[in-house]
Design a protein around this nucleic acid. Structure first.
Lengths: 199, 199, 199, 199
DNA sequence: TATGAATGAGGCTTCATTCAT
DNA sequence: GATGAATGAAGCCTCATTCAT
């Protein structure tokens, strides 16, 4: 039974892994439309045909990569949100999480930033996205009177704007060094911004 | 006597204007690569060939639209920056300016947001971009001791993140109504966030 | 009555002349398909539309220029042929004529060399071409026993090859100076070649 | 066991071969600009896209065909030149070689004649062209006192003019039958012409 | 099952020609 | 009669996808 695994899975898994790594890196560098199947296959070291054994189309490849990463991030943020921490601690944890995501795989982060507008419309309504997690965190805090009444979406925009723009600046070289080092300051900034939304 | 103007100008100027309007709207809706010359020509109501009398290529059309809007915004922010107002007033004015830009032509704003990653590398170094204006505003404030010492880029990221993410949320329907109505709150949020960056 | 000439003819004639000069020069430099109507109009300093007042199409412009120059050359060679001179003298005069044509307007010569394959099929059968003149000159000489019996076309090929290849070499810089200076030598070469065709 | 060769090679090699044959024939008939990729693909019986697996552009296809044939001819003539034969024998061999080339593949010959002006500027300086071979042959003969002093280029022009104009006449139907049958006469003609260049 | 050549649709661009002014 | 912007038909090329081997 291990024979099966030995012969097929690793090879296939290897192909899939290599393709996904190549695709993320190339999409992050050149955008979805700036990358051809030939590019991906070449960087992954596989044939173009092999790629279609794992994904039915280029669109589906991109979508799988995006939705997986995006919704996984949503889950992780939701886990923070429902972890019982106070609002401040939860925001701080979320900011730290974003920083960690960026530092660990900035290509994946850049891929999401770059291609979001193409894939977001395909996200099924009802999915738990990162935005939903932050919006609900703010909404909960308002409900629980931890925060004066504000539009939860506005609060979420402020929180996410702080971290996402820092990531963008980092990508373009305006900011250097690990983002994680700035997580505490960014968390403070987010919280202060949210607090300032109310008079 | 106005016959000349009436008869000649509109033909050429009309085409260029119609093409630019169509291009911005379509790029804003579908991204640069998601729009074909045929799409633009059809929406503008002109032939595909006519487009090439005004722009030498699709790339140059997109670049002209982007760089014009982007650098004009940079100039306008620079004008606010050098207008003699205090830091708080200047940030408030900038936020209001961003909101006005969005409210007046949200397609153009969305176009810039969507296509920036494709065109930013072509911005000549030394140009005054919106980012430069905000970074320098923060830098000046630090120099003049209006702000405790912080990385100007970090301060700018925080300020721009707040407004740009709100615009993004508005585009996706998370936020409704004129952004201008929220300008004061967003200005407060930005300022509080910057202040919180230092301990 | 001279008013008419003063106002209209020179202007029109000027346009036509300028267009033809520009067209010949450009076609000679870039080939027929390598030149656009826009190129010709620009070099001639006239509008594209004006060009169509004198020629119904680009093809007709090229054809008029080619056939005029080509058939005129045919006439001139025919005049030499029927001028009563002996074979040797006639060949010598023809070679000198080719050299003069080249030296006087090498762009026109180059134009003919370059575009001949495109226009030759349109020459009406029965026209007196340069080739016909030389072929008939050789044929006459054979008939009159000035030459041992040879295929007149073969003799003509040899004569024309000598001068045309020299022109080609001159165009490509292999040969320098006025071709006219070499006319006597080329005439001798042509005659010797024709003579050598028979055992 | 030959199955592999039978099954795989012909697919790729077949396409390339068919494309090249079609391209040469069409270019020879209509000139480079008179032939579209669609024409070539149709005559070759392949799709237009398939063509681009073998050549990166139409220009490169034409260039590859031209430079290969042209430079190969240069090599062959150079081999004759350096073969140790006397001048007369070498010229005779070269003329015979030209005739053989024409008789074996007159479309290829016509292709070279027709498209030379478009491709000659791309020949790298220092390449051994057919013209160089003939020029050097004449130059050597002068150096070795086999020939009275003449401009080698002039001698080469005369030699090449004789054969190339015969080929041209053959193309246009002025001369019929195999050119090879006329090779001896043409060789005599060339030699006589060269000799006559000096008084 | 992997390969990569072939397909074919569609995109960008050029340009001869027309025509309103 | 002159102008030059607009047209529209090709032309070249790319690339996601398929498929024979």
């Amino acid at each position: 039974m291990f024979t099966y695994k030995w012969n097929v899975m690793p090879r296939s898994a290897g192909v899939k892994t290599k393709v996904e790594r190549a695709a993320v890196d190339l999409f992050a560098a050149n955008g979805f439309d700036g990358v051809s199947i030939a590019d991906i296959a070449a960087m992954a070291g596989v044939s173009q045909g092999a790629l279609y054994r794992h994904y039915p189309s280029k669109e589906e490849l991109g979508w799988a990569l995006f939705s997986t990463a995006y919704l996984r991030t949503g889950e992780e943020l939701d886990r923070i949100r429902t972890g019982g921490a106070e609002f401040e601690a939860a925001v701080t944890a979320m900011i730290a999480h974003f920083c960690a995501l960026y530092d660990e795989d900035s290509a994946l982060f850049r891929f999401m930033l770059l291609t979001q507008h193409g894939f977001l419309p395909r996200i099924p309504s009802g999915s738990r996205t990162p935005v939903d997690a932050v919006v609900d965190l703010v909404g909960d805090a308002v409900t629980k009177n931890r925060l004066k009444p504000i539009d939860p979406a506005l609060g979420a925009a402020v929180i996410m704007g702080v971290i996402l723009q820092c990531a963008t600046f980092h990508i373009y070289g305006r900011l250097c060094g690990a983002l994680g080092a700035r997580a505490p300051a960014l968390a403070r900034a987010s919280l202060a911004a949210v607090a300032a939304l109310t008079q």
